[in-house]
Design a protein around this nucleic acid. Structure first.
Length: 828
RNA sequence: GCCAGAGUGGCGGAAUUGGCAGACGCGCGGGUUUCAAAAACCCGUGGGCGAAAGCUCGUGGGGGUUCGAUUCCCCCCUCUGGCACCA
């Protein structure tokens, strides 16, 4: 029986304190070792952690500890995305001031992370709501303003009726607020935007360089940016000097245009209809459509409706008169708000034309076929031009460019690219965020706060009930100021910034968290960035990751950093579910790490979290199943403590020259195969679940060996010692407390994390014997155990003998030999 | 609708380049121990047939390629995620 029982409570606090004392997680700025920047998405400090949150930090901690053992100078910082609505909403409901509750929650989070045995370089902690941090968020805002990338403009914006503030496009899901699920409506407001659209092309193109990001995330970003190539074409208006510019991806269908469509919000609409008999009807229709929201209007299922404006456009190539309609399915947000209607080759236009009995003209046909004069559906495939004058007979892929060239020559069109991406609306009419550092002066207009006056402090005492206007606007002492240019009376901007601004650069601040003179030190940042491994939830696939990439590119263009992508590798972990649902306080299905640690210990919790399944996938939490990993820890502990006295005196130098029994050789083989497998699982795929299962197998095998051996032979003692030395190191990133304790038991004086990860000996990984599958007609009948590397003829002979029962009376037509694997006899 | 990803025992999940399907763990059944229970340990555990040896079916469904398919190809079904009147 074990000399000492495994008691997690007795060892975990000790080692946590010890790691702190030796500054295990402190990055060494002067080290010559290769750097490894291991970053986990910093959390919003809500009430308390649950084990679902814990998965993210556990993964990062395992990686950080592993990389330490591989000889890297590891940077693993942590901080808090501390501005945000939940704290403010709680305060409104009568809770504490957001600042008080946020800092209290941070204390809780840090304590919980500590109990997990998760270590960080806490000396680098950043808290986004601290003035020392948001000073630099404001500083970055001003740099963007100076570059013309932070602009105030009037636009239709998303307004969350629950949060009483505007939202970015990315924060609206199915017409609802991503955060609170309230209805989101459109409002025409003047707001601050960051012009991320200026970077649409590099944001798209550089995705190609991110080969260590999940394809899924790259695809999502690509779709979100939504590039489409086409042409802009100008149509004249009959009896008016107006021009209608359309964007189309199908200039090859130009000769099939039989009507024009305008969005109800089209700016030139009123001028076009003012003197027309149809004006009243058009206005009524447009107003009605404008009042529809989101999916009601803009979804494929929605009914296509429109009205004739009484006006005609002039076809740029044929001079034909084309009726102009207003239609609900034309969106002002995309393209120019005007579309050319080609019913023969666009399903939407076809539906519209059918409904309003508009002409349908086929201009692309399948080669060799005469198109129907009355098509029953839109033909959207490739073909050759017909009814297209000089382009007839040309395949549409070729005519595409030729038609654009012809338009260009006439000065009425040119190739164009459109993106779906919208500018990033960063204003928020709420309190708990970084104030936008701008001043409005009647004389000088919008003026940035001078750098020397930063930060613009967020005042503590404010009545912050949401009214649709920023709470700061009601605080005269905040609003009233003087113009930095003319010294006259001026008013401060009272909106605060979207919290995604705070999180779009925090990974840079970790590198000089206390620097009072600048947001980050370019020299240090250029050395440490990009992040070597970023770990976080897939819910940030677009929002945070796109914004961070954008800000990085802007900083690169400002010559403040020398890299254009912040995260070289990204890992997105899956959710942990309970009862098939996401863990959340409101569902009441959260599992507390504190209680789990009280019952099973931090190492068991970590191990079970990792053992649930591959970390990129969602996983279902089963309270009972943690007993498996716990029992494994007990077995590993007992194995070390039961055998240490018997093996400890052996000199490891004898390892290479000793003689080994068959069993001892098998143990050595298992040890080295496990080193190889666990290393591969960690290194290649983060598949810690299989790594742990292999360690379980090793412990089971080693236990059987220990029970059978009296350790009288030096070979047995050496093989066992080798196994335990490897086991404790391999286990260390996963179960660090237990590993440290066992490492000490084995006689080591320093931390296992200051030791080296074991190396597999390739010659020992190979087993002495192999079990070969013997098949007859592809069906497994038996197996034979043969010496490794037996020549094929001898192998077939052995297999033949073993399968005699199934081969009797048959003729062997063919024999398939896969060395080291199987022999298959094909018989008749 | 379009684009990804997935579908394997009662459950979570394993399976190099196609080569013993179900590793490892939970649960379950039986046993040891105990006055008893818990814990621990040992044995068993995909379905069907069989006393057993063994046979047979089996990785969402249907076809195909192959000596051999969870793996490759075609068609279909279901689920998850993303996009969705994007011109």
């Amino acid at each position: 029986m074990g000399a000492r029982r495994y008691e997690p409570k007795e060892i975990e606090a000790y080692w946590q304190k010890y790691w702190d004392e030796i500054s295990l997680f402190k990055m060494d700025p002067d080290s010559l070792r290769p750097k490894f920047y291991c970053l986990m998405m910093f959390p919003y400090p809500s009430g308390t952690l649950h084990v679902g949150h814990g998965r993210n930090y556990t993964l990062g901690d395992v990686l950080a500890r592993y990389k330490m053992m591989r000889g890297f100078n590891v940077l693993t910082p942590m901080g808090f995305d501390a501005f945000g609505l939940p704290a403010e909403n709680a305060a409104i409901k009568g809770g504490m001031h957001p600042k008080t509750s946020t800092y209290a929650n941070i204390v809780t989070f840090k304590r919980q992370l500590g109990r997990y045995g998760i270590g960080y370089d806490w000396g680098r902690e950043v808290i986004s709501c601290a003035p020392e941090y948001y000073k630099w968020t404001q500083w970055i805002f001003i740099r963007l303003f100076e570059k013309g990338l932070a602009v105030r403009k009037k636009a239709p914006v998303n307004w969350c009726t629950g949060c009483q503030t505007v939202l970015a496009n990315e924060q609206v899901v199915d017409d609802k607020c991503e955060r609170c699920d309230s209805k989101v409506i459109q409002k025409e407001l003047e707001q601050w935007f960051w012009r991320i659209t200026e970077y649409a092309e590099p944001l798209l193109k550089d995705l190609e360089t991110l080969d260590r990001w999940p394809d899924k995330v790259r695809t999502m970003q690509r779709n979100w940016i939504g590039k489409s190539e086409g042409a802009q074409i100008d149509f004249g208006v009959d009896g008016d000097d107006a021009k209608i510019r359309v964007f189309t991806t199908r200039p090859d269908t130009l000769f099939g245009v039989t009507f024009m469509l305008l969005a109800p919000e089209y700016p030139g609409l009123e001028k076009l209809i003012a003197d027309r008999a149809e004006a009243t009807a058009v206005r009524r229709f447009a107003d009605q459509v404008k009042n529809q929201i989101g999916t009601e209007r803009a979804s494929e299922g929605a009914i296509k409706e429109g009205v004739f404006t009484g006006r005609h456009a002039i076809h740029p190539m044929t001079g034909e008169k084309i009726p102009i309609w207003v239609a609900n399915y034309v969106l002002m947000e995309y393209g120019t708000g005007a579309v050319m209607g080609v019913p023969a080759h666009d399903v939407r236009d076809f539906a519209f034309a059918t409904k309003y009995k508009l002409p349908i003209r086929v201009v692309i046909a399948k080669p060799g076929e005469t198109p129907s004069a009355h098509p029953t559906e839109a033909f959207t495939e490739d073909g050759v031009q017909v009814n297209s004058r000089e382009f007839d007979g040309v395949p549409n892929r070729e005519s595409y460019g030729k038609i654009v060239a012809a338009l260009e020559k006439k000065g009425v069109g040119k190739p164009t690219i459109h993106y779906r991406l919208r500018d990033w609306l960063i204003s928020r009419q709420r309190y708990w965020g970084a104030p936008i550092p701008m001043i409005r002066c009647e004389k000088d207009g919008i003026v940035p706060v001078p750098d020397k006056d930063l930060p613009v402090l967020l005042p503590d005492s404010v009545e912050f009930k949401p009214t649709g206007e920023s709470p700061l606007a009601r605080l005269d002492s905040f609003v009233n100021t003087t113009c930095p240019k003319c010294g006259g009376p001026a008013r401060r901007e009272t909106d605060t910034m979207d919290t995604f601004v705070d999180s779009s650069w925090y990974f840079l601040r970790y590198l000089s968290p206390k620097d009072p003179t600048k947001p980050f030190d370019s020299r240090i940042v250029n050395k440490w960035m990009p992040v070597d491994q970023y770990i976080g939830g897939v819910e940030h696939a677009i929002l945070h990751l796109l914004y961070s990439r954008f800000v990085t590119k802007v900083l690169a263009d400002l010559k403040l950093v020398s890299f254009r992508e912040p995260f070289a590798a990204l890992f997105t972990q899956g959710m942990i579910t309970k009862g098939g649902e996401k863990m959340s306080k409101s569902r009441g299905n959260t599992v507390s790490p504190d209680e789990t640690i009280d019952q099973w210990g931090a190492d068991a919790l970590r191990l079970y979290t990792l053992f649930l399944g591959p970390p990129e996938k969602d996983a279902e939490w089963d309270d009972r199943a943690i007993s498996g990993p716990f029992r494994f820890l007990v077995k590993a502990w007992d194995l070390v403590h039961d055998t240490v006295d018997k093996i400890v005196k052996e000199d490891p130098k004898g390892l290479a020259t000793a003689t080994y029994s068959k069993e001892a050789r098998a143990l050595r083989q298992k040890t080295h195969a496990t080193i190889r497998d666990v290393t591969d699982d960690v290194e290649k795929s983060f598949h810690f679940n299989t790594a742990i299962s292999k360690l379980m197998v090793l412990v089971n095998d080693a236990r059987a060996f220990a029970d059978a051996s009296g350790f009288a032979e030096p070979g047995d003692r050496l093989a066992m010692r080798e196994c335990l030395e490897a086991l404790t190191r391999l286990l260390a990133p996963f179960a660090p407390h237990l590993a440290e304790e066992c490492f000490k038991t084995l006689g080591h004086a320093q931390s296992v994390f200051r030791d080296r990860w074991p190396e597999a000996d390739a010659t020992l990984v190979k087993a002495d014997e192999q079990e070969i599958v013997v098949q007859v007609n592809g069906k497994t009948r038996t197996t034979v155990t043969v010496p490794a590397g037996l020549d094929p003829d001898a192998l077939v002979a052995r297999a033949n003998a073993a399968a005699a029962e199934w081969l009797a009376g048959k003729t062997i037509v063919k024999t398939i030999v896969v060395p080291g694997r199987l022999v298959n006899f094909v018989v008749k």
